[in-house]
Design a protein around this nucleic acid. Structure first.
Lengths: 240, 240
DNA sequence: ACCTGAACACCGTTCAAGT
DNA sequence: ACCTGAACACCGTTCAAGT
């Protein structure tokens, strides 16, 4: 025992590389949450002195950039069928799946000040699917914005936030809500009835909601495309 | 000079209140950015010892909650016209405007673990507009999700990120992009042609893009409503 | 009872001293 | 030349000592 690479103590880790640092950080964030990811903590997890990380990563921002690069790079790129709506749908659902797998990824991705190469590649391939389907450059441009844009100025999955089950929060959800927010209560009740499995939350099927919104947008785009929509002479937007 | 409340030194501030703390924090974040908002820095800005803040705010999370509460509470609630599509559009554009005014607000709002009363009130009033317009509870439910949902699993205004103008970044934008990301380059070129004012960015009209996406969704909803769409028997989603 | 300075347990990153 | 411990300049929050 006490030999430098003995079997008793903490195992001697393989030599560090950028990839090992990034994957270590991803695993750390998956397990402990992104808010508790620190350079010092990650170094300890990797069995390394904190400053050793700075050989592979210029600073914490670069670490976060790299983590996003790995996650976005892993988005499945299925073979296209040539039908743009199907192919776009498939690609976006693949991205959705990858990001769902790492709960911290969306917030980190949105906090990046500029896009990473993998992000640009993904966007470019998606753009290419629209153009290959015969959509105009003009329409494709605005569709890309539509897909990237959060509605209302803010955008997160609004009913997904599981409130802490402290007393006040439960009161708000169960008692105060129906009185003070009757409209929200009505749709929450209907959703809970449709899926009685969840007792306190509204019991929404996140995947259904995601696909509903995606299809609504893609169908709307299809309509505009068929009408030869152009930003120069907008026909309102879709119907009028 | 040196009198406790003299005219020479830093002016004696009015007594602290939760409102003064929250508005001080908002002003601080507007000027210095949310990332440099600290309890200690805010206290100094308010001419107060750090621990004094904890009389009005339970911790930093509560401070952030309160800031969001103020911003969301300031969303303009125009008088409704009775036409649901118009009224919803107006309310959402008002929210968009309020959040644009505080660049940090979207990220902070999305980072909240549960909704604040003002957020719930806003959502309830929006839900009420759909229901008053005759949309089914079912459709209204999914529409609320659609508006709240970011497309693709991630969602920020994708082309809004103004990259730092360091050399590498400019290279990426100007030279590498057309070669490596031809599709993105094509729509960027078209957009720059339409609006030659911005030299490096794609020159997109953010407000136009926001309204395009909003109208696309609202028009799609209108179509589903006219077809008596129900999640029990979805007609695909819209057209087929 | 209220207020607050000092202290605690952290951060990311710099830097100079070691090999 | 490389590596790394200590140090620097911060955090949010606790706590005990002061009034």
């Amino acid at each position: 025992m006490r030999t430098p690479s003995g079997a008793g103590g903490p195992a001697r880790r393989a030599t560090l590389s950028r990839d090992r640092v990034l994957r270590g950080a991803i695993a750390y964030a998956d397990v402990n949450g992104i808010e508790s990811l620190s350079m010092r903590g990650l170094a300890q997890e990797l069995g390394v002195v904190p400053m050793a990380l700075y050989k592979h990563v210029v600073n914490k921002e670069d670490l976060l950039d790299g983590m996003i690069e790995v996650v976005v790079g892993e988005i499945d790129q299925a073979q296209g069928t040539g039908q743009w709506k199907h192919d776009v749908r498939q690609r976006i659902l693949a991205a959705h799946k990858s990001l769902l797998f790492h709960p911290w990824a969306r917030a980190v991705l949105e906090s990046r000040s500029s896009m990473t190469p993998a992000m640009l590649d993904y966007l470019d391939s998606l753009t290419g699917l629209f153009l290959a389907g015969g959509l105009s450059v003009d329409l494709t441009h605005h569709v890309m914005h539509t897909l990237g844009n959060r509605m209302w100025g803010f955008s997160q999955e609004l009913f997904a936030a599981t409130p802490k089950s402290d007393t006040e929060s439960l009161n708000t959800q169960r008692n105060a809500l129906p009185r003070q927010r009757p409209h929200l209560a009505e749709i929450a009740k209907a959703a809970a009835h449709a899926d009685p499995s969840s007792t306190v939350g509204p019991g929404c099927d996140d995947q259904f909601e995601f696909e509903f919104a995606l299809d609504l947008i893609l169908d709307g785009v299809d309509t505009l495309h068929a009408r030869h929509w152009s930003s120069a002479r907008p026909t309102t937007t879709a119907s009028d």
